[in-house]
């Protein structure tokens, strides 16, 4: 295994358990698949997420990379779409900004106090499901891509067109 100090054994065990559970149970409705990018690094995962139906993201398949801290699940992981998605709650570099990936003390936008926060009872599966519903319903109060927030608010049709356009490009259509 990669060098992460002697103390990440618990994190590793937890990640293996989550992976086992995900592969045996399968994702609900086949909305996503996820797992470590290689057997030598259990602390970096990749997810393939299907764009939710009846949203402009429908038809797309999006790749996100998740990086886990050595003290997972005490601290949350980070999630980044690569290539980045055009979405109000995704930074232009692709990093996902969602309350469930923030600890209660860490509130960059100050709008998330009432929402679900990271705690060790969360999991990769729960986070990805939250991200999928975030794709369908952006949260404009805690925007990460300001231009996208504005466009979504002022001209939703154009926002949806741009999202569909980017998916077509991605699929090479």
């Amino acid at each position: 295994m990669s060098v992460r100090g002697p103390n990440s054994a618990t994190a590793l065990r937890r990640l293996m358990t989550e992976y086992k559970q995900l592969t045996s149970g399968g994702a609900p409705d086949g909305m996503f698949t996820t797992g470590p990018i290689s057997e030598s690094d259990f602390f970096t995962w990749e997810a393939l997420i299907c764009g939710p139906k009846e949203t402009p993201f429908e038809g797309g398949v999006f790749v996100a990379r998740m990086t886990f801290p050595p003290d997972y699940p005490l601290s949350p992981f980070k999630m980044k779409f690569d290539p980045p998605l055009f979405h109000p709650n995704i930074y232009p570099d692709g990093t996902v900004c969602i309350s469930i990936l923030h600890t209660p003390g860490d509130d960059p936008t100050m709008y998330e106090q009432a929402s679900e926060r990271w705690s060790p009872v969360q999991s990769v599966e729960k986070v990805i499901l939250s991200v999928i519903s975030m794709l369908a319903e952006p949260n404009l109060e805690s925007g990460a891509n300001i231009d996208c927030c504005k466009l979504y608010r002022d001209n939703k049709q154009e926002y949806e067109r741009r999202v569909r356009e980017s998916i077509k490009q991605q699929l090479g259509l």
Partner: peptide
Amino acid sequence: GFDEIAYDTPYDL
């Protein structure tokens, strides 16, 4: 009703 993955590893520890 906690998910087993949430408490299994710390319990084993």
